[in-house]
Each structure stands twice: as structure tokens, then as C-alpha cells.
Design a protein around this nucleic acid. Sequence first.
DNA 1: CAACTTTCGAGAGCACCGCTCTTGACACAT
DNA 2: ATGTGTCAAGAGCGGTGCTCTCGAAAGTTG
Lengths: 235, 235
Amino acid sequence: MAGTPRERAREQTMGDIVRIGRSHLASQGAAALSLRAVARDLGVVSSAVYRYVKSRDELLTLLVVDAYGELGDAVDQAVAAVPADDFAEQFRALGRAVRGWGLREPARYALLFGSPVPGYQAPAERTTGPGTRVVLALVAIAERAWQADSLVLPVGRPEPEGLARDLEAIRGEFGLKAPAAVVSRWVQLWASLFGAVSFEVFGQYGPDTFSRPEELFEGQLQVLVELAGLAPNRS
Amino acid sequence: MAGTPRERAREQTMGDIVRIGRSHLASQGAAALSLRAVARDLGVVSSAVYRYVKSRDELLTLLVVDAYGELGDAVDQAVAAVPADDFAEQFRALGRAVRGWGLREPARYALLFGSPVPGYQAPAERTTGPGTRVVLALVAIAERAWQADSLVLPVGRPEPEGLARDLEAIRGEFGLKAPAAVVSRWVQLWASLFGAVSFEVFGQYGPDTFSRPEELFEGQLQVLVELAGLAPNRS
DNA sequence: CAACTTTCGAGAGCACCGCTCTTGACACAT
DNA sequence: ATGTGTCAAGAGCGGTGCTCTCGAAAGTTG
């Protein structure tokens, strides 16, 4: 699998840089990430790092796809561990995986879902793929539940025309059989879920308001499960 | 109202600093906020600013309370413009006010609800007051609706003991008559609302996914209104 | 009015940052 | 053995937060 020794050495160094950058990111946050500090930990002068990483933004991009990948893996793994026919629990497992990863890696979570880093624009061609894994896992649950006839169609007014068109585009792009109302609802669930997680990770609740935040989160999950149209216990 | 000329001049300069800092924050984001740049715009050498603001973090704190205040004003004003007995519309007005302010002031919204600025901890004694205005406005709607007998009590399992105690503490602190289940539900609504707004402000939906994001948001609001236990049309 | 005190801006300086350019050494392929 | 390409090192530019000292101006007091 390895090419020339040069390529092997280069790959090794690239891996080291990402690893060091990840640890800096986790301990000090994105704004404090500095190529000079990475170079120091790498045991090399600062300018040498530019041989491998074009700029600080480039390193940020590497860390973004790295984080998306790890979150996506955690989510996929959590969902896969649930019986294939228990869609409500799959949803809960996904939510708990996101929350767990966010609390474990607050700086990396912030990099993905917090304020955009000023002056940095993630290159879409490299980040959209890894970046959509979670929402894709989410609508995949919806789609499976729909096909298993386990999803209650949300009632409500018909969507306005513009939104309806967007939703049809999404359905088409991913070949979804679930109707637009389901897609719309699950997009909203997606936003609500990350709202709950972000509030907790970013400390919006305050330090002492909730002694057991996981209980609050479980309540949130339960509400979202019902909102999703997944009967809580379909035994 | 003005004291000595010195105090007047000092207050004037402080105001200028906050104003300049706000404009820098709005145009370049929190991480790009620099005291030196503020000093330049103020027409003064950098060290002179330290006579007025102890540190960069101090300036950030000033801008945080400034932003909380403006958001709180916008929300209060929007809610007050709705008929006193239309609680569902008050909720929607609050949501639209938050979204509108966030989209108008993305960098300042990010400062309040995005990633915590690394190494910066907002001093609780100066920020909790302004920072809780929105959630207080939210539960105030719930409380008024409850007292007007316009709130449907959410059904569900009883809360776990730890959460129940926290909710009782909240009820006691603000003298709420609405039961704990209502408080719990509205805290969840709070998180969901900001999840929706944050996704839009931070661009999580992608640039081209939704052609009319406000339609998506209105749908979200409608779901949250129903979740709140506010009958959509109680005519 | 004169003397004293307080306040403030200016400037220099420290250590850090991202980033660029040049230089010299080394490993590799021919 | 002779090129060729890759690499680290170092100097340097302009930027940052922050501290210190110094002199001038303003306000206060006798």
C-alpha cells in the first residue's frame, strides 16, 4: 500500500500534524490553533509545516473532515447497535451519540456546529460529504421506518410552494419514498436535536441550573420521538 | 445627569469604544476583534485603550451585554406588539424576533449562542441578567397562558427525581404557577427554537438547499406552538 | 494664583501569531 | 557519480495582546 519511502514519510508527517492539531483544537479551541505551535510539538521550525499544509485554513479543513468523520462513525455505530426494527430507539441512539461526542469533544463540536470561524470558509467539495453523514443517518431512519409502515404521517397544513419544491428536490436527490411532509418534519427534528445538544455543550443552561442534564436530554429525545411520528412502544 | 467633565469625556470614549467594537464584531467576527484595530479607528494609540478597557476579554464582555440587551429589546418589543390573549402568536413573534435579529447580526448572534470564545469566560455576574431575558420572556408567555387557562398540560411520564427538583427550583425562583411539566416542555422549546435559528444563521443547511428558509422556519414555529400546548386557533 | 494630584495619550518593548522568501543540506533516481 | 527534487532552517514582514515609563494636560486644593 505504501509507495516510495518519500511518500510514506510524507504521509506519516501529515498524520502527525493532524493528530497534533486535533489535540490543540481539543484543548484550546479553534481560534487558538496555530501552525507555529503545531510545529513546536512536531519538533520542527514553523516554516517547515508549510511544506505539508498550505495554510492555517487548510489545517482547519483537515480537522473539520476529521471531526465529521469521527462523529459520523460514532453515530453510525450507535444506530447499528440497535435492533433493525426499533426505529424510535435508533433515533434515540443517534441523539445520544451526538450528545456524547459533543460533550466529549466540545472544541471539535464547536468547530462543526458553532460559530463559523471568521475568515474561514470550509471548501464545500471536501466537507459536504462528511458533513451530511449525520442528517443522512437521520433521514435514513425515517425512510426505513416509512417503508416498514411504522411512521405516522404528520398532520398539518400543506407546505408553501417554495418549500414544497425544495423538499421534492431532497426526496429526488436521495431517492426517498417517504413523502415530503416526513422529510420536512425530520429536518426540523434535526435542528431541534442539535439545538438541545448545542445548548448543553456551549453551556447555555448555566452551570448549576440542571444537576442531571442527561435527564433533560432524555425528555427532549422523548418529545422528538413523538414528534417524529415514531410510536414509542409499538409492541 | 453628567458629572464632572472628566466623567463625561470618559463615558463618551467608552461609548465610542463599544460602538467601534460592535462594528468590528459585526463585520469580522469575534476572533478578529482586536484592541489595536479599535484604537486605530478611535484615532488613538493602542495602549491608550487600556485606560478604558482592561483587556480584550473585558471588551468582549461589554459587547456580550450590549448584544444581549439589543436582542432582549427586540424580543420584548415583538411580543408586546401582539394582542395580550394570543399566546401562540406571542410565541411566534418571539421566535421571529430571534431569527430576524440573528440573521441581521450573525456575528453578534454567534458571540452569544455559538462556540464559546476559547479562553474567555463571560463573568456570570454581568451577563446572566441580560442573558436570561429571552428565556424569561418565553416562560412568561407560558405562565400567562397557563394562568389564562389556555395551555394544554403536556402528557408524559413523570420527570426523574433530579430533573423534578431542578424544575421546582426554577418554579420557585420565578414564582411560577405553571406546573413543572410545563416548565420542562418550554425549556425544550427554547432549545429547539435556537437550534432552528442557529442552523440557519450558521449555514448548516447549506447555501442552496432551501430557497425560502423563512417557510421552513414558519413550519418549525408551527410545530413548536403545538408542542407548547398552545391551541393554534382558539377562536 | 500657585502648587499638587490625577488622568490620559504616546511610545517603546516583549512575546506571540500567519506567512513568505532564501539558503543550504540531504535523499533519491538516473 | 552526477543531477534533481524535497526538505528544514532562518530571517524577516506586519499583525496581535499586553506592560511599562514618561510627559503633558486637566482638575483639585491651598
